[in-house]
């Protein structure tokens, strides 16, 4: 809970207890909390500003509760989507398109527009982890018309990160890769992502 007692960011609990668990973002940010995967549709979202979805999302479930999510966005809520779009969910999310090949050239990440979440994060620190390319994005979820394209991958700058602002003020930030919060303890400029993401998602 935040100092004023409100939850601003709700994380959907990803798979736990099966090995390889990541550090919990919610332990570091008082305005964030975690809820069970299948309770999202019955959760009181009235004080919630953002729902952050893990790449391990059950997209079939999320598609079934799309009406609840669309209402949340209509009220000005934000969604952070990680992963590859596979099942029908929100109309703004179109099916993932993989890269034609995983050559180094195809895996290079390029900033297309400045954005609060990626401020100060270099292209190199997104493209490479310990000198190896390919962790960030292996393709893209095609953006809807009107989306701001944030990062592109490969020579065609395929938009692997984009944000759509709806007329209601609601927003969808889409990242076609692993959870952005995997960078929580990153020692490079990519370490800026998590605090900036929480600040962006939880702002009034």
């Amino acid at each position: 809970m935040s100092p004023e007692g409100l939850t601003h960011c709700v994380f959907l609990k990803a798979i736990k207890g099966a090995g390889g668990d990541l550090p919990a973002v919610i332990d570091r940010y008082p305005s964030a909390r975690e809820i069970d995967h299948y309770t999202l549709h019955e959760c009181d979202l009235s004080s919630v500003r953002a729902i952050l979805l893990p790449a391990h999302l059950d997209q079939r479930y999320f598609g079934e509760i799309a009406g609840v999510i669309a209402d949340f966005i209509q009220r000005g809520g934000r969604i952070v989507f990680n992963g590859h779009v596979a099942w029908p969910m929100l109309p703004e999310l179109q099916k993932f398109v993989p890269l034609p090949s995983n050559s180094l050239q195809n895996l290079m990440v390029t900033r297309l527009s400045s954005h609060m979440v990626f401020e100060g994060v270099t292209d190199a620190d997104l493209t490479f982890r310990r000198g190896v390319a390919g962790f960030y994005a292996r393709g893209h979820n095609p953006p809807p018309p009107g989306a701001l394209l944030i990062n592109g991958v490969g020579p065609e700058r395929l938009p692997c990160d984009w944000v759509l602002t709806k007329p209601s003020g609601g927003e969808i930030l889409c990242h076609a890769g692993n959870d952005l919060w995997m960078y929580i303890d990153d020692q490079t400029t990519a370490g800026r992502i998590v605090p900036q993401l929480i600040a962006w998602a939880g702002r009034p």
Partner: peptide, 11 residues
């Protein structure tokens, strides 16, 4: 078993 994830969908 399909847990509804993108990687189960692809696999």
């Amino acid at each position: 078993v399909d847990a509804g994830t993108y990687y189960h969908h692809e696999s």
